[in-house]
Amino acid sequence: MTKKIINILSIIGLAASLGYGIYLWKTGVLTSLSSLHTYVAGYGSWSALFFLAFQAIQVVLPILPGGLGCLVGVLAFGALKGFVFNYVGIVAGSLAAFALSRYYGRPLLYRFFSTPLIEKYDRWMEKKGRFARWLAVLIFFPVAPDDYLCFLAGTTTISWRSFTTIIVLGKPFSIALYSLGLTTLFTHLITWN
């Protein structure tokens, strides 16, 4: 039942984001980067706090693709601040996902994720000590199912310290690739004034 609710929330979140994006486009906010920055600055520090919370929550409840959040962060706040806000929010969400699965255990995985996905990554945990190495490698690259891996890690014997170290050191590279790569692609697709 939970998987179905998450899928529905994801569809609603994507539709709401598209709708809000169209609204911002029609009102002129998305016609240039300067218009977008002025709009975001109008909310003061609340815009940064809202964005940090959004990035953290989207790791635990994936309402939107994480890459989209990274793109929004860089476009709305600039390359450096956007990267920092993306990083802090995603790290906070990753730690929260780990904490939830550490508390609730494997039943939480089956409520949120598909059995084939769980079985695929369970094979990595067959040998003791292997999971932490694979986690470190996968978190470093932007193509892995990071959200799931954070939940999965909480059900293993990996320590809080090891998990936090892997997330803190491994996330910057993948977030930078998502943030800057998607921004470059986006700016090539859209002509900014």
Rank of each mutant, 00 (worst) to 15 (best):
Y20L: 15
S32F: 10
R133L: 13
K120N: 11
L108W: 04
V59E: 02
I5H: 09
E126Q: 08
I8Q: 04
R123L: 14
D147W: 01
L9F: 11
A53S: 14
L189N: 04
S179Y: 14
L180N: 14
I90N: 01
V40K: 05
C70Q: 06
K81N: 09
A53I: 15
E119I: 14
M125L: 09
W124T: 09
F54K: 10
Y39H: 13
L135I: 10
S114L: 10
T157D: 07
L185N: 07
Y110R: 11
V72I: 13
S101M: 07
R161W: 15
C70F: 11
R133K: 13
F141Y: 06
L18Q: 03
A16P: 05
T31W: 11
G170D: 00
L9Y: 03
Y20G: 15
G170E: 00
W192M: 15
I6D: 00
N193M: 11
G89L: 15
K3R: 15
S35E: 03
F173R: 01
A97R: 00
A79W: 11
G93T: 08
L117Q: 06
T27P: 02
E126W: 02
A16C: 13
R111W: 05
W46S: 12
L61S: 05
I139S: 01
S101H: 08
W25Q: 07
T155L: 11
Y87I: 14
T184Q: 05
I190H: 06
L109S: 14
Y110I: 06
L18H: 02
Y178W: 15
W25P: 02
I22T: 12
P65Y: 03
K128H: 11
W25S: 05
P65T: 00
S45K: 08
L189E: 06
L71M: 09
T115S: 08
L30K: 04
G19C: 13
L24A: 14
R130F: 13
W134C: 06
F113A: 07
S35D: 03
G78T: 05
I139V: 09
M1Y: 08
S32N: 05
G129V: 12
I167H: 00
P172C: 07
Y20K: 13
G89Q: 01
V59Y: 04
L14F: 13
I8A: 11
L177V: 15
L30G: 09
F98M: 10
E119H: 09
V29L: 12
G19H: 04
G67E: 03
L152P: 02
F186K: 01
S94M: 03
I22E: 07
F186H: 08
I12L: 11
A92Y: 10
R161L: 15
F54W: 11
F151E: 03
R106M: 13
A79E: 14
N193V: 12
N193W: 12
V91S: 01
G181A: 15
T157E: 04
G129T: 12
F83G: 14
Y110V: 08
L64F: 11
Y121M: 03
V143Q: 01
Y178K: 06
P145M: 05
E126V: 10
L75H: 03
I90K: 01
A136Y: 06
L149S: 00
T115D: 04
I167V: 14
S101Y: 09
F140S: 02
S101L: 11
A144K: 02
K127A: 06
T183E: 04
S159L: 04
L68E: 00
L117A: 05
L138D: 00
V137Y: 10
I8L: 10
L152Q: 04
I190T: 10
S47H: 05
L14Y: 06
T183W: 03
L189Y: 13
